[in-house]
Simulated scan of single mutants.
Amino acid sequence: MSLVGEERKREILELINDAGKVRTNDLVSRLSVSSETIRRYLEELEEENRLKRVYGGAVKITLAHEEPPHTKREVLRAEEKKRIGCAAAGLVQDRDVIVIDDGSTSLQMIPFLIYKQQLTIITNSVSGLNMLIDYQNKELFDGDVFFVGGKIDPRHYRSSGTIAEKIMADFYVNKAFITIDGMLPAQGITSFDADRAVLARRFMQNSDASIVLTDSSKLGNGTLHKIADWNEIDMVVCEKPHPAEWKTALAADGVEWVVAE
């Protein structure tokens, strides 16, 4: 590696330390090099355990392998999540029975569902439940709402655990809207939390269609607990196209990818 190359890599590390992440396109413009050169720098820095590559760039390595709290998640990438939520709500038809999990992305669906007719919505999200009750009291939503109770996780405003799974076992829905913490071809979709992964799997098993909602920061990441393989997913809604190298695997498993404009 040349001296100039080492200086560029050092600048990349300084940027990622300050912002927590970097984007390949931004680095191309800032450092006046090709995207291939940037990818090589990122690969080398990842091999040195200095950063973690993700789709479109890289993120700062952290030793905390846990899910951010709900209050932090709901403000991260808020505009992207709103677009995804709007696109996902467009997949819901009048009189559908759907389950919406506790993810900050899937909760963005709710404001776009209020004028749908005769919906039945099942959720394990305390925040989602409160939103739906508020819309019902304001006569903006005329559907039915069921809460999947169980052990309450106050940090993430959700229920989970064996009781929640047993309750969900008695429901069957048209569409399950699931959020994730990671997605990789070899691992499928994953979660930071074991109980959340188990409940999400139950949501999918008891649904005619399983729809994953994710912003692009989750692409290329793997977390500890498996939710499902790609062949168990019907559709992914994301604000960006899938990585080009995923095309063959997605097609083989019959996964439709919807880009939220």
Rank of each mutant, 00 (worst) to 15 (best):
G103F: 02
K116M: 09
D94N: 13
D134N: 08
P111M: 07
F147L: 07
V126T: 01
L63H: 15
I84R: 01
R95E: 14
K81E: 00
T105W: 03
V54I: 11
N49S: 14
L63A: 14
R77E: 01
E79A: 12
E48A: 14
E48S: 10
F146C: 08
L129T: 11
I38N: 13
T105M: 06
L129Y: 09
S32F: 06
H70I: 08
I133W: 09
R50M: 10
S125I: 05
D134G: 11
V33K: 00
G128A: 03
I121M: 03
D102W: 10
P69D: 11
V126R: 01
S104Q: 12
V148S: 03
F146L: 12
V148K: 00
Y55C: 04
I114A: 13
H65N: 11
L107A: 02
Y41A: 06
N49V: 05
I122P: 04
S127D: 07
A88H: 01
E44G: 09
H65E: 12
V92D: 03
G90L: 01
V75A: 15
I38T: 13
R73F: 06
S34M: 02
V54D: 05
I110R: 14
H70E: 09
R95K: 11
K52I: 12
I121N: 02
V145D: 12
T37I: 13
L132R: 03
D101A: 07
Y135L: 11
N49Y: 10
S106M: 02
L31G: 01
V33Y: 02
V97T: 11
K116P: 15
K72L: 11
C86F: 08
K82Y: 04
A78Q: 09
I100N: 07
H70D: 09
C86E: 04
E47V: 07
V33N: 03
